[in-house]
Design a protein around this nucleic acid. Structure first.
Lengths: 331, 331
DNA sequence: TTGCTGTGCTAACCCGATTTAGCACGGAGC
DNA sequence: GCTCCGTGCTAAATCGGGTTAGCACAGCAA
């Protein structure tokens, strides 16, 4: 494992000083370098396949082309992986690398990870949440460049934020049902104040002009959804369409509908949110509004590296992925 | 954003030279430092909450306490996230951070990412694959410390490798069926030579003394599994148990069984591999052998940071997660 | 007194880059 | 001949640590 080629080697090879080599390679035009010397340096660098030591450079310039991602969970949800992927790829496009830290939501771990990253001179942070939610800024982050990723500060934003446009998503989902004639529609899931998306989606549904005929309250998992929808189908008002607040709820709803002898979409249309893998796997496949996780990660990196004049909250559009779970109401 | 406290500041505050401060803080006992001076330095460091600049340190020591993860896909599969999580947390335990790179399997991108990491002085690499498979070592990695993560070199290993113990997993799955009396068992999925796990699982199944009554060939996705199992149930030999090569196949099998009027587990027992989220969500919930992804990531970090005397291949045990999809055969 | 030994510390160099300050040289103008 | 200016470069400082070599002093033996 031969030791790396240094700037010194390049300079020697080109017959100039380290200073000159540095000027040429960092492209500083304010210093007077002859075309000849410049060519010799560039050639030497190429021939030796010189790569600058970014630690040494960072020591001087205080930039490392490295971004820290602080996440509550890297992967409780598969979603989180998409955020990371979007961020990693965007970082690479900007010639940056991503170092990641998982905090499990623990403030202590959070502080430690941020410090560990600062010790390594990261240029800035992505402060990410798996679930879109309102969050508080950890004190250690104060004074350092960062972007809210899939979360929002309580009050006015001191930094930019990237979140999915859940409100429009609500409108999309509702319109997918009304467009084919559904009028009696139930909402499945519980619009908890904790879950920011729930409120937004509901607002979007209302904005679409839909009056929800019934709300089936349940936690956002297949089992509770199955139970709640089963009893709703047995005793609740009759509906022709279901808006499920996520795909896992939709899975529970499918199971309940099937046991109740209802066929999707002939007897019951279903639309959902998230567009997880599940949506494509169910029979019939599930129409769902996709969370743009990779794009969230990507845009957050963009905003961190090319910050706007003043902080902005960017709402990334969500798209309806139409599949086979919606049909016009029968009769 | 006040500039960081440096070793110089600590030394000044303690009334000693930078050298002495460095000796105390790095814990070198071969230099003679009086107890008094030592205490003053430690106190100063504490009071100023000094944290060493790891770039500066790394420049000298050539270690950065940073590990690079090279992955084909950070998240095509939710699994990948688990590997990352396991690695991140293990790294943190060892006072290391993880920087990640995604290559999409592209050798060019791979080389670039590895170089980018080397430029930042990472101490070593985890060369990871989402799917367990035999892999070739990228040339850029040669000469640097690394560990194979969820993949294996073709021949003799020049570095350690961490893989799931798929063979025992096969035995576990098969035994789960035979233990309650199943004798006519079908295997669903296609034992492709590309997919290392398939061969191992099959070998494990055979090692359990099970003769597979039929093999239902299909790709490892719900839709093709549904089609293949449907036609098998209609025309194939009668079986009481199904071993599905992953959970997505099991989902397809559930759908097929249901349409054929067979009830799981009363008429048909099902066991599967992976133990993805899906397994817990299906009705009845699915018994599955869990892929230990987080543990793979964690062990890989351990092996990288505390390398054994000679390279070893570590097979991480897989555990059977028993749920409701297995019952004794009827009659 | 001289020499030796051990204790406790520090000056100076090194890692590999960037950056500031300024030197050497040639030609033009007076 | 002397100054002045522009051109083209480099010496040296700097970033913040780790590390080597060696200095100053005290105590003790001969």
């Amino acid at each position: 494992m031969a030791s790396r080629v240094t700037l010194q080697d390049v300079a020697r090879h080109a017959g100039v000083s380290r200073t000159t080599a540095s000027f040429v390679l960092t492209g500083r035009r304010d210093m007077r370098i002859s075309v000849d010397a410049e060519q010799r340096v560039l050639r030497a660098a190429r021939e030796l396949s010189y790569r600058p030591n970014l630690m040494a450079r960072g020591l001087r310039t205080r930039t490392t082309h490295t971004i820290g991602l602080i996440s509550d969970t890297v992967t409780t949800e598969p979603f989180a992986g998409d955020i990371v992927r979007g961020a990693v790829n965007a970082a690479l496009r900007h010639d940056n690398l991503l170092v990641i830290g998982e905090t499990s939501g623990d403030r202590g771990v959070e502080e430690r990870v941020v410090q560990d990253m600062l010790d390594r001179g990261v240029d800035g942070f992505l402060y990410a949440s798996t679930w879109t939610r309102v969050s508080r800024l950890p004190a250690v982050l104060r004074g350092h460049p960062f972007v809210w990723l899939n979360c929002l500060p309580r009050g006015r934003a001191s930094a930019s934020a990237v979140i999915p446009d859940e409100r429009s998503a609500g409108t999309l989902a509702a319109s997918a049902l009304t467009a084919v004639g559904h009028e009696r529609i139930a909402l499945v899931g519980v619009p908890s104040p904790d879950v920011w998306a729930a409120g937004e989606r509901l607002a979007g549904i209302r904005a679409a002009g839909v009056t929800v005929a019934a709300t089936v309250e349940c936690d956002w998992w297949p089992e509770p959804a199955y139970t709640a929808v089963s009893s709703f189908l047995a005793t609740g008002p009759s509906v022709t369409g279901l808006i499920c607040l996520n795909d896992r709820i939709a899975l529970g709803a499918y199971q309940a509908a099937q046991e109740a002898g209802l066929r999707v979409p002939d007897d019951l249309s279903v639309v959902s949110f998230d567009d997880s893998d599940l949506a494509a796997w169910l029979r019939p496949s599930l129409t769902s509004v996709a969370l743009p996780h990779a794009e969230l990660g990507g845009r957050a990196v963009d905003l961190l590296l090319s910050p706007p004049a003043s902080p902005l909250v960017e709402r990334v559009p969500m798209r309806l992925h139409e599949r086979a779970s919606i049909a016009p109401p029968s009769s």
